[in-house]
Computed example of a mutant assay.
Amino acid sequence: MKTTLCVVSAAALLLLSACNTVKGVGQDLQKAGEKIESAAKK
């Protein structure tokens, strides 16, 4: 579980660093939240 969370967090950071707009940041945060939620359900 910790490994999954670390991987998801690292992916979220990479996505956020690639963003150039506020709208893009919002979309990235939403996707990261969905991934974390699905990982938590498992």
Rank of each mutant, 00 (worst) to 15 (best):
M1D: 12
M1H: 08
M1Q: 09
K2G: 07
K2T: 04
K2A: 11
K2W: 02
T4I: 06
T4M: 03
L5F: 04
C6M: 10
C6Q: 12
C6S: 10
C6K: 13
V7K: 14
V7L: 13
V8Q: 02
V8P: 01
V8I: 15
V8N: 05
V8K: 00
S9N: 12
S9K: 10
A11F: 00
A11P: 00
A12R: 00
A12F: 02
A12I: 02
A12D: 02
A12V: 07
A12P: 00
A12S: 15
L13Q: 09
L13G: 14
L13Y: 08
L14E: 06
L14V: 11
L14G: 10
L14W: 02
L14C: 15
L14Y: 04
L14N: 07
L15G: 04
L15H: 02
L16P: 01
S17T: 08
S17A: 12
S17F: 05
A18T: 10
A18C: 15
A18W: 02
A18Y: 03
A18G: 09
C19Y: 00
C19F: 02
C19V: 15
C19T: 15
N20D: 09
N20L: 11
N20E: 12
N20M: 06
T21A: 05
T21N: 13
T21Q: 05
T21P: 00
V22D: 13
K23Q: 11
K23R: 14
K23I: 06
K23W: 07
G24Q: 15
V25A: 10
V25H: 06
V25M: 13
G26A: 14
Q27W: 09
Q27Y: 11
Q27K: 07
Q27V: 15
Q27S: 05
L29P: 00
L29D: 02
Q30V: 10
Q30L: 11
Q30R: 08
Q30H: 08
K31I: 11
K31V: 15
K31G: 02
K31M: 13
A32N: 03
A32K: 00
G33N: 15
G33E: 08
G33M: 05
G33R: 08
E34V: 12
E34C: 10
E34L: 14
K35C: 05
K35D: 02
K35E: 03
I36A: 15
I36F: 14
I36P: 01
E37W: 03
E37D: 10
E37I: 05
E37C: 09
S38M: 08
S38C: 06
S38H: 09
S38Q: 15
S38F: 04
A39D: 06
A39G: 03
A40M: 10
A40H: 06
K41P: 01
K41Y: 04
K41F: 06
K41S: 10
K41M: 04
K41W: 03
K42Y: 05
K42H: 09
K42C: 07
K42V: 08
K42D: 14
K42P: 01
